[in-house]
Simulated scan of single mutants.
Amino acid sequence: MLRDKRQEYLVALILVGPFVLIYGALFVWPTIQMAMLSFTKAPLIGTGDWVGWDNYVKILSHKLFHQAFWNTAYFVLLTVIPNTLVSLVIAMAVNRLKGPVQGFVLACFFLPYILPVSVVFLTWNWIIDVQYGLVQGLVALFNGGQPISLTRTIPLFMPTVAFVTLWWTMGFNILLFIAGLRNISPEIYEAASLDSAGRWRQFQKITWPLIWPVTALVLTIQLIAQLKIFDQVYLFSIGGRQDATITLVQYVYKLAFQQNKGGEAATAAMLLFLMIIVLSVLQYQVLRARGEK
C-alpha cells in the first residue's frame, strides 16, 4: 500500500510539475520581481536605489492616480452590471429560438467578441465620427440639431467607450448564460406551468436561482476585465485630453513607458493587482453566499 501511494504521488507530480514550473516562471517570479521593484527608484530597465514605502506614499498622494482610480471605478460601474443584465436578457431570448435561426442569431452576437480591439476602434470611430458618423443624426436630436464629438466631450467619453465595450464583449457572456440555461431541466418549467405559474414567476423561482452561479461567474469575470481596461480607452483618447480620461492601466503605462519611472510604475501596478484580488474575491464570496441562501 505504501508503494502504491508513492506511485500515485509520483504520477501526480509528473502531471502537475510542468504546470507548476511554467506558472512559477511566468507569473509567480515576475510578480515577486515587480513587488521588489516597487520599493526602488529604478528606471524601466535597470536597477535603482531602495526607497522603501516612499513610492507607495507618493503614488497614493498623486492627483493623477486619484483621477485614474475614479475613472476606472466609473467605467466599472458603467459596464459590469449592465453587461451582465443585457447578456442575460439576450441569452434568454436566444435560448427560446430553435434550429438554424438560433445558431445564426447567436453567431451575430458572438462575432464582435472575436474582433481585435483595433478593428472595434476603427469601426466605431467611423460610426460616431462628428462629420459623417451614422449615429450623429440621433445625437443631433438631443443636442439642438448639432452634432457632437462623443469622444472629445469629457462627460460623454466614458459612457461612449462603455457602450462600445458592452457591444464588443457581451457575446462571450451570452454563451455562458445559454450554457447555464440549457442545464435547467425543461421538466421543471412544465411542472411550474401545470401549477399556473406565469413567465415572470418562473423566472423568479426557477431561472434566476438556478442561473445564479453563472451570473456570479460572469460578474467576477467582468469585474476583473474592466478593472484592467486599457486598449479601447487609450485608442479613443488619442488626440484628446488623455489625463482627463486616464485609467489605472494607462497610468501604469504613462509612468513606465512615457516617463521611464519603473519603480513608481511597479508600485501602481502592485496597487492595481491588490485591488483586483481583493475586489474579485470579495465580490465572488458575497455572490456565492447570496446564492446559497
Score class of each variant (00 low, 15 high):
Arg241Phe: 06
Ile229Leu: 14
Phe236Asp: 09
Ile211Ala: 12
Gln259Phe: 06
Val249Ser: 11
Trp212Ile: 02
Leu227His: 04
Asp231Ile: 00
Leu223Lys: 08
Tyr251Cys: 05
Pro209Val: 04
Trp212Asp: 01
Ala244Cys: 03
Leu235Pro: 07
Leu235Gln: 15
Ser237Leu: 04
Ile221Val: 14
Thr245Phe: 08
Phe230Tyr: 15
Asp243Glu: 15
Ile211Leu: 15
Asp231Trp: 09
Gln222Thr: 08
Thr247Val: 14
Ile229Phe: 13
Pro213Gln: 06
Tyr251His: 10
Phe230Ile: 06
Gly239Lys: 13
Gln250Arg: 10
Asp231Met: 07
Ile246Lys: 12
Thr215Phe: 13
Ile246Asp: 12
Gln258Glu: 14
Ile238Asn: 10
Val249Ala: 12
Gln242Ile: 05
Leu217Pro: 00
Ala216Asp: 04
Arg241Lys: 10
Gln250Trp: 04
Asp231Gln: 10
Val214His: 00
Leu210Met: 13
Phe257Asp: 09
Gln250Cys: 01
Tyr253Arg: 08
Thr247Glu: 09
Val252His: 03
Tyr251Trp: 08
Pro213Met: 06
Ser237His: 08
Leu223Gln: 05
Tyr251Met: 07
Gly240Arg: 09
Gln242Ala: 13
Ala216Thr: 09
Ile246Gln: 15
Phe236Leu: 09
Val252Lys: 02
Phe230His: 08
Ala256Leu: 05
Trp212Val: 00
Ala256Thr: 03
Gln258Gly: 02
Thr215Cys: 11
Tyr253Asn: 15
Ile246Gly: 03
Ala225Trp: 12
Gln242Ser: 13
Tyr234Gly: 01
Ile224Lys: 11
Lys254Gly: 01
Gln250Asp: 11
Asn260Tyr: 13
